[in-house]
Amino acid sequence: MSAVTIGLAAGTLVGMAVILTYILGWANVAFYVEVDPRVDAVSKALPGANCGGCGFVGCGEYAEAVVMQGAPVNKCAPGGANCAAAIAQIMGVEVGEALPYRPIVHCGAHTKDKHGISDYRGEQRCVTANIVADVQGCTYGCLGFGDCVEACAYDAIHVINGLAVVDYTACVGCGACAKACPRNIITMTPFKADRVFAVLCSNKDAGKEVKKVCDVGCLGCKACERACGLFAIKDNLSCINYDDYDPEHLEDIFKAIDKCPQKGIVLVGKPSEKDMAAVADKEAPSVVTPDFKTTVDDTEWRG
């Protein structure tokens, strides 16, 4: 190869490099999108959990929504009050009052309470067992294979004797467990106090049918409804009206607890000293209307 050829090749490469550098520099200016520095500041204030509990895909998208769309500054459950205060300071707004959201498992049946449990040998996951008929008699209750446990990054929910139980001392309210439950029996609920009362059942069948499959399920007998105005029976299932729920005045709820034949009205949450003092002279079990979804709701039928 002659020196002239080598020189031409080198000159061509240098020329192309100059042209591409110019094009890239022009594109960088022409297509530059200015990013509000507050987005980066909010991102750094967030814990980086990317749990999706705020309703956005991750912390980065939430940070953009706070700055660009005016999303609430207190939506990060893992970050808690300190994180909300930091974001509020960046945005120059007040945090405002917001109730913490925590999961409630709308089932109170341990293995011993369940009837009709089959010898299921398929994949040991709730999402798989949920599409199999007759895994257990109750088609509404906790399957107990622990999809919610696997989804929780905070070790705040565990399957104990066939039932998912929330550890409220570790729970941050990210909502991952609720998203993982194929039966939608875990509901994210705003807690007006450290502990709230809940009905631990999702079964909407008639009472006699409930008795066939579960020893502790709600019978829809209306005893709680007659004893306390916070309760209403909807589709054979007792529900609490949390809009009118007042943590300071719960006397009638204890009347409903006494009347409930299944003892299915329970306290859930992390007990504080104030909570313990309030119920010191009461006898109440310690373990929201469910958004229940059946197996066939997600099934594509083919003829």
Score class of each variant (00 low, 15 high):
Thr189Lys: 10
Gly207Trp: 09
Phe231Lys: 01
Ile185Thr: 12
Cys218Met: 03
Gly220Ile: 12
Ala193Gln: 14
Ala232Leu: 07
Ile186Tyr: 07
Arg183Lys: 15
Ile233Leu: 01
Phe231Arg: 07
Lys222Met: 05
Ala206Phe: 05
Cys224Leu: 09
Thr187Glu: 12
Pro190Thr: 03
Ala232Asn: 10
Glu209Ser: 11
Ala198Val: 15
Ala232Cys: 06
Asp205Pro: 05
Thr189Pro: 11
Asp205Arg: 09
Lys222Phe: 05
Pro190Lys: 02
Cys221Arg: 11
Leu219Gln: 08
Cys201Tyr: 00
Cys218Ile: 04
Cys201Gln: 02
Asn184Cys: 12
Leu230Gly: 00
Cys221Met: 05
Phe191Ser: 02
Phe191Ile: 01
Asp205Val: 08
Ala232His: 11
Glu209Thr: 09
Cys218Arg: 05
Cys224Trp: 06
Lys211Phe: 02
Ala198Arg: 09
Ile233Cys: 00
Lys192Asn: 02
Cys228Phe: 02
Gly207His: 02
Val216Ser: 10
Arg195Pro: 04
Val213Tyr: 04
Thr189Trp: 10
Lys211Met: 03
Phe231Val: 05
Lys212Met: 11
Phe197Cys: 02
Cys228Ser: 00
Glu209Val: 08
Leu219Met: 07
Gly207Ser: 08
Cys224Gln: 11
Cys201Glu: 03
Lys208Tyr: 09
Asn184Glu: 14
Ala198Lys: 12
Phe197Tyr: 09
Ile186Met: 06
Ala223Tyr: 15
Val216Gln: 06
Ile186Pro: 06
Arg195Val: 14
Gly229Tyr: 11
Lys192Arg: 12
Cys224Pro: 04
Ala223Cys: 12
Lys208Thr: 02
Val199Asn: 05
Cys201Lys: 02
Leu230Trp: 04
Glu225Lys: 13
Asn203Ala: 06
Arg195Cys: 14
Met188Arg: 04
Cys201Met: 01
